[in-house]
Simulated scan of single mutants.
Amino acid sequence: MSSDDIIINRLATRLLTAPPPMPAVHMLVPDWAPTQPFSRPPVPAAVLIALIRRPEGHTVLYTERSPDLRAHSGQVAFPGGKVDAADTDVAAAALREAFEEVGMERADVRVIGFMPTYFTGTNYLITPVVATVEPSGPFVPNPGEVHSVFEVPLQRILSPESYGEFRIKRDGKEHRTWQIDHDGHRIWGITANLTRRFRDLAMGEAVS
């Protein structure tokens, strides 16, 4: 068994075995505070943290969003999106989005668990779905949603030296997120924060 397999097996024991329940709205604290309070309930969403088995070791899959999208254009993200009424749960939503965005086949995926929800300053309540993937073919970006697909070695994700700090100003206030630079791609914001939470969980460390 490889070192990656050992880490993933250990991670599976630390993940939630079922999607977490919707927290009470008054208990939710967004990753950054908007200037106006939310006028509607949080929007349920899901992302797929896909651990891809490669001959040289596992990788984590990311997408670069299309520059033509209205929201978060050009940013790096995990496959994912809003939970639709037809989705049976957040795992179904994440896998549907992964197929729509990069052609990931459901039969290639084994969901190993769920991470706690993440509440965003844009009023999305995201559930990260963690899965191992043995791809039967290449990932092909859907040009309407995804500009490119890339993978980061799992060992790089697990190294604390891979993480820096990203700063951005919103409404005159400075906000900070984690940042990971890899092969010309800059991962920051929600995606970097979720990556760091995944890393801390995998390594058995307090979420930072």
Rank of each mutant, 00 (worst) to 15 (best):
S2Y: 06
S2V: 04
S2T: 15
D5G: 09
D5A: 13
I6W: 06
I7T: 13
L15A: 08
T17N: 10
P19H: 04
P21T: 11
H26C: 02
H26W: 11
L28Y: 07
D31W: 03
A33Q: 15
P34F: 05
P34C: 13
P34E: 08
T35S: 15
F38V: 05
P42E: 04
P42L: 10
V43M: 06
L48S: 10
A50Y: 02
R54I: 00
R54C: 11
R54N: 13
E56A: 15
H58R: 15
T59S: 15
V60E: 05
Y62A: 11
Y62Q: 03
E64M: 12
E64I: 14
D68R: 11
L69W: 02
R70T: 14
H72Y: 14
G74I: 05
A77Q: 05
A77R: 08
F78S: 03
F78T: 00
G81K: 00
K82F: 10
D84N: 12
A85N: 13
A91T: 04
A91R: 10
A92G: 15
A93P: 02
L95Q: 06
A98W: 04
F99G: 07
E100P: 00
E101R: 08
M104W: 03
A107H: 08
A107R: 13
R110A: 09
G113T: 05
P116T: 01
T117I: 01
Y118N: 10
G121M: 11
Y124T: 12
T127R: 09
T127C: 12
V129I: 12
A131P: 09
A131S: 11
T132G: 03
T132D: 07
T132R: 05
V140N: 09
P141H: 03
P141G: 04
N142F: 08
G144I: 01
V146H: 00
V146N: 00
S148M: 11
E151R: 03
V152L: 08
R156C: 00
S159R: 07
S159Q: 12
E161D: 13
E161N: 08
G164P: 12
R167S: 13
I168V: 14
I168A: 11
D171V: 04
E174Q: 10
E174F: 02
H175D: 05
T177F: 12
I180D: 02
D181M: 07
I190D: 07
I190P: 02
N193Y: 06
R199K: 04
D200F: 00
L201P: 00
M203R: 09
